[in-house]
Design a binder for these strands. Structure first.
Lengths: 343, 343
DNA sequence: TCTTTAAATATAAACGCTTACATTTTAATG
DNA sequence: CATTAAAATGTAAGCGTTTATATTTAAAGA
């Protein structure tokens, strides 16, 4: 077997507890013995066994990252890798490990979270999505297990720590941008309605219309998954309307890609025939034709902040529930155009 | 504290060992007591503590997934999430957990791997890249730690289990496709040269040229990271040549995106002015304009197979080194065009 | 020099599980 | 009905740490 604390102890002529204490760099050990023990560790090639340690201290120094269940489409959206990168950065700094979910469907995911929690696999969890009546979130609050959500909780908002953008305001801003450009027939294409983020962005869209005195048109509202195929479907639906929109507020860059593609099939050009605003500012959004006017929600920062909050929560037991709002910024590119100014 | 095996034992009036055996569904326990114990577990809400279990059995039922160090650019390429999805699928089926690397630079990553290995955090490792003189891979063989690589090892090829495509052949095929279309001025833009995959694809490209009797032109070969910005740089370099190429073999869809974008800035259209073949068949590749003719390397399957191989290796100690070649398929779309047939 | 106190280290009991081995119970055999 | 074998369960020793408590050693005070 591998070399243990006892081997080191023997070699350095001390008790195992002493070795343990020099690992923890306890001030109760004289610098002399510390040196001696460290030498022995080096010579033997000692490395602590985390399982044993975790068992003794009842923690795992690991955090679980839960992505939406529909792994099929979820992981395909660069949003997730990008938050993950943020989370990973602070995890690395603080020497936490990252456990990621693998569940394919809702049920599997739920089982997996239970395994993480009950099995003491992780000390805390980061939820990378937020939807209504989510069994997993309910479970976590029920169990009083430390977690933070990236996005806004659909309930218990004040008692759950979360990091989010001000999506209402962001959505209002882009809609206003479209209105400023003279558009009044503005469609909204968002993700599934059970996602809190969709709700918020729709709300912002509505507020902007209302403020501008533009009547709300139900036909202009479409909800679907975040994916390219759904984007296509959405376009089809809108373009066959009597009064097709001249602009659209989309809530995801990937979706926008699909929409623009579909538009072309219908013989329409963006932004000449239709203006588009988007969300996320994925690295793709500046590479598409046209480059997208999109809301930079600072995905990486969302990840950073989420992880930070969680770890704070883990370090001091009764850290209060926090809310951190990551600022957004609209990237004005070329997917929107002033109405009636066909040059 | 949480409910332990002893609590269950007491409640069910059996010895802890019996409970343990029930958990393992050992045939040595009568169905009667099994039932009784299971009932007790349910009533008490028992869940095994993995740390304790791992310590006892000296394993962790977890596999480590190592992505390239430059997390900045790496995770941005949907290739990685997609393999991860494959890996996750089989991990889930076999009840393994997934540990992912978080290291930002080479050194950090190396440290992390050591922590995984020495700390008994994972039972095996999947390397999601393969480059020359990789300290991590060397470390793993040195330690005789179970691992598989997705990609082809740069050395010890016969003693390391890996899953890969036949990249030489694939690259040859796409190059030939270009040649068939009448192109002779064909450039190659690949990732950094220390990546084995780049080597292979370049080799295929060269072979195709040679077979067709087309002289090798060093100016046509460009190496860089897999990213969009590097793609742009590459284009610039090629177009300012005396005899700029009429076609290019690119080794990554993301790069292709950048290239096409850049081409436009130079006033060139793909495929009218220049033909492009690509690799990976990311979901984007059919959404771009033009949709890319690209090699479908079946990323998801690479992940599936990689995980399968690793787990086989973990289950039976002396599983022989394997090589599994995932078949590729060229997706013919609209980014290539017959030379001189300007319609 | 003898206490008293502080500093340094050792002892041993957890942590929650698995498993080799021992023991008891049950069934089978002559 | 005793004997033996097989089946079912129990006992206890790990797995490699941490940590409360005890012990030893060294320094300080009287």
């Amino acid at each position: 077997m591998a070399v243990t604390i006892k081997d080191v102890a023997k070699k350095a002529n001390v008790a195992p507890s002493t070795v343990s204490r020099v690992i923890a760099d306890s001030p109760r050990i004289s610098t002399d013995t510390k040196k001696r023990v460290r030498k022995a560790m080096k010579e033997l090639g000692y490395h602590p066994n985390v399982n044993a340690r975790n068992l003794a201290v009842r923690s795992s120094k690991a955090i679980g990252v839960i992505m939406p269940s529909s792994a099929e489409t979820a992981l395909q959206n660069p949003f997730f890798p990008e938050v993950l990168r943020g989370v990973g950065t602070v995890a690395h700094e603080t020497e936490y490990s990252l456990y990621v979910s693998t569940g394919g469907n809702d049920q599997q995911l739920y089982e997996e979270v239970k395994r993480m929690v009950y099995g003491h696999r992780v000390d805390g969890i980061i939820l990378l999505y937020s939807r209504m009546n989510d069994a997993i979130m309910d479970f976590l609050v029920e169990e009083k297990f430390p977690f933070v959500v990236v996005g806004k909780p659909y309930e218990n908002e004040s008692s759950i720590t979360y990091v989010d953008n001000d999506n209402v305001s962001a959505s209002k801003d882009v809609t206003n941008h479209l209105i400023d450009f003279g558009h009044t027939a503005i469609a909204f294409i968002g993700g599934t309605t059970d996602l809190v983020v969709t709700k918020d962005r729709e709300l912002g869209y509505e507020q902007a219309l209302k403020d501008a005195g533009i009547p709300y048109n139900e036909d202009y509202i479409i909800h679907d998954e975040f994916s390219r195929s759904s984007g296509k479907k959405a376009v089809e639906q809108l373009l066959t309307l009597n009064h097709p929109p001249t602009a659209m507020v989309l809530t995801d860059d990937m979706m926008s890609l699909g929409v623009i593609n579909m538009l072309e099939e219908f013989g329409l050009e963006c932004p000449d025939d239709i203006s588009i605003t988007s969300f996320n500012n994925l690295y793709l959004s500046e590479i598409t034709r046209p480059p997208l006017t999109t809301v930079d929600i600072q995905i990486y920062k969302l990840g950073i902040q989420g992880a930070k909050c969680l770890i704070e929560q883990l370090q001091s037991k009764d850290e209060p529930a926090k809310r951190v709002i990551v600022p957004y910024a609209i990237k004005h590119r070329s997917s929107t155009k002033r109405l009636h100014s066909n040059d």
